[in-house]
Amino acid sequence: MTTTGTDTHRGSPTCLPIRSDMDLMWIRQEVRRLATEAQFSLVQQTKLVTAASELARNTLVHGGGGHMEATVLNEGVHTAVRLVFADSGPGIADVDQAMSDGYTSGGGLGLGLGGARRLVHDFRLDSEPGRGTTITVVMWHGGVPPTRQAI
């Protein structure tokens, strides 16, 4: 099979539960492993793991638990790691407010969502009050390939 610049190939996804602090540790380890496998630089690895740590903790603390699905994407010579955090918790009623730095409904710093968005290349938040929250982030090795500007 030939690969064109716009074809995206996906490795098989891994799915990890997010139900406890211990799970958060596994998530960080797994994301670090995938980022290493995708040959991310140390800085990129650190950024992705940190973003994952923020989002997974939100899934646990605000979403009441859920799971993360991780996939390695290949597009031509470009590699990316995509992480999807999903919960079926209360959802986010005011997304703009939640995304803004310093806003927290609990005792946090309110930096998780905004910070995670800055740390990765693509960030998408889908949430419906009462139905849950799904956040998808993508980090490309080196940078976003020119053929692709969205998820």
Partner: peptide
């Protein structure tokens, strides 16, 4: 470490 420093800044801490 340098990687942590860069991450902290982008996180907004």
């Amino acid at each position: 470490r340098p990687a942590i420093a860069q991450t902290i800044v982008q996180l907004g801490l």
